[in-house]
Design a protein around this nucleic acid. Structure first.
Lengths: 108, 108
DNA sequence: ACAAACCATAACCATTTGGTTATCGTTTCT
DNA sequence: AGAAACGATAACCAAATGGTTATGGTTTGT
């Protein structure tokens, strides 16, 4: 289960509107496309396209309910980014590693 | 000192060639544009442009030495991404928070 | 002094991206 | 049944992106 392809995730997070949508879903929970549209300040088709990109990165899931589609954040899809930071964010790596060691000792 | 603008950083990390350059600088240390060019598999001007983007995100620093320019990674510029993950990566937030608490107790 | 090496910039190009309006298929409401 | 709401898709467009070759300015080597 080690780190899926990071590229779609980094790509998806590169756009501020997309990040805003993901943030909204994270903070407020599941939302319809309609609700997200009034939040995002762009047209409904634009939101649908952003959601498609987020979907490809597995950062959101959707659930159809009648005529509406409910989207929710899937934050564990951020794992590739966390892994990447652990490997290349030298400044942070030590802290991550110390965390892991400590947690394992605690959990053990 | 809380979290500079995250956008240039996310943008910079969105391109795989740029990530590869940053990774190379992180793992191998300071490098000239020439060295990075043979590593990256694109033309020298392309590398220069990528370095400019990384520079704007403060992910790299450069140092002129005669006719060559040495670049090195500046991984603490990843801080905005880490902060963002702490806020919106709900799945990871607990671990981050536990880390902070533990480290503070240890350092104290 | 001349030539070569190094790197940034300019000029250019094809593709991708993020947005729009228009439309279509469903589902719900009256 | 007919109208309205919801959301995905199509068609389109301007701007941004990532790449190229050409060039120019320094610095180094002969």
């Amino acid at each position: 289960m080690r780190t899926a392809n990071a590229n779609p995730v980094f790509r998806a997070l590169a756009d501020p509107t997309r990040r805003a949508i993901f943030e909204e879903l994270t903070l407020q929970g599941e939302q319809t496309v309609h609700a997200l549209t009034s939040y995002a300040g762009v047209s409904q088709p634009a939101v649908s396209k952003h959601l498609t990109v987020l979907k490809r990165a597995k950062l959101v899931r959707h659930r159809r309910e009648g005529r509406e589609t409910h989207y929710r954040a899937q934050p564990d899809a951020l794992a590739p980014v966390v892994d990447w930071l652990r490997t290349y964010g030298a400044f942070w790596r030590d802290r991550f590693d110390r965390l892991e060691a400590l947690l394992e000792r605690m959990d053990g």
